[in-house]
């Protein structure tokens, strides 16, 4: 059970490409625009374009495509399950039945819906992976902090919330490593994770998650003390080593995103003119 190898979400691959050099705010807004676009795509043609665009971004950022996608492996069962759910449970009034078994029947509308939803989640995941692979956690914080700053005026502690989120993201890898270690330790002590029925298997997870949670709390406590010792008292009065400023790369990226959005919207409208 090598869990850590497959987790690319929250990992940062340093680099010097123009994607890396983009202002984090540009990247966050671009990701938000792309994710919003995903919600409106209801046919395959725009997805084709979306796929090309995503591949182009991955290539431009110098990340090996296989690496970017291997993070998807743990997600695969969920994607497949979702696809099946949509396939069998989605019903439309004039749908044509393709396969029918017992009380379940798969319709073409269900198939279409299954494909769309699976693709949507797939791309959602890919976009977020690209964002975190090319943006250091601290730039992400800086970007989010700067974007969420207006919320401070209505009393939301945006800086502290962002800090919490970012630390959670940093500990994903550390906790995954730890989970791996605990599983091996418990296997060495005779817990058979692959044997028994569903209930026994579920019960086997307790000796894994209990130590994991206890350790996570211990880590959290140590981290708090260490942060406090380094004069952290919350967002107030903090300055930044790196000041954000948008440059030429960001302007070009903005233009690219706008063109791409326009194109996708055009395709959506021309394929489904009724929307």
């Amino acid at each position: 059970m090598e869990l850590t190898k497959n987790i690319t979400l929250g990992v940062y691959l340093p680099g010097e490409t123009s994607i890396h050099r983009l202002d984090p705010r540009t990247k966050i807004i671009a990701a938000a625009i792309l994710i919003t676009l995903l919600l409106f795509i209801k046919s395959y043609q725009p997805y084709g374009l979306f796929m090309l665009f995503t591949i182009a971004v991955i290539i431009a950022s110098g990340i090996p495509i296989s690496y970017a996608l291997c993070g998807l492996k743990p997600m695969l069962p969920v994607l497949v399950l979702m696809w099946f759910f949509q396939l069998f449970l989605y019903s439309a009034p004039e749908a044509e039945v393709i396969v029918s078994w017992w009380i379940f029947s798969a319709t073409d509308a269900g198939l279409h819906m299954g494909n769309l939803i699976t693709l949507r989640v797939f791309f959602l995941f890919t976009i977020i992976t690209i964002l975190t692979l090319t943006t250091s956690i601290v730039s992400l914080t800086d970007g989010l902090e700067s974007l969420l700053k207006p919320l401070r005026m209505i009393g939301i502690p945006s800086q502290e919330l962002v800090m919490t989120m970012i630390i959670a993201l940093r500990f994903v890898l550390i906790l995954a490593e730890e989970l791996d270690k605990i599983i091996k330790a418990q296997m060495a002590r005779g817990v058979a994770f692959d044997r028994g029925n569903f209930i026994q298997k579920t019960r086997n997870l307790f000796p894994v998650f209990l130590p994991l949670f206890i350790n996570a709390f211990k880590r959290a406590e140590e981290l708090i003390v260490a942060m406090e010792a380094r004069s952290y008292t919350g967002g107030k009065g903090r300055t930044k080593m790196k000041t954000l400023h948008m440059g030429r790369v960001d302007r070009s990226a903005g233009v690219v995103i706008m063109l791409f959005t326009g194109l996708i919207v055009y395709i959506i409208l021309s394929v489904n003119p009724q929307i």
Binding site: I167, L223, R238, K242
Partner: peptide, 21 residues
Amino acid sequence: DNQLVSSIVEEDIAFGPENLG
């Protein structure tokens, strides 16, 4: 591992001075 805040060395080193404003 439990005292480094950032995933980049130099940005972690900047954490303290940043807190000093």
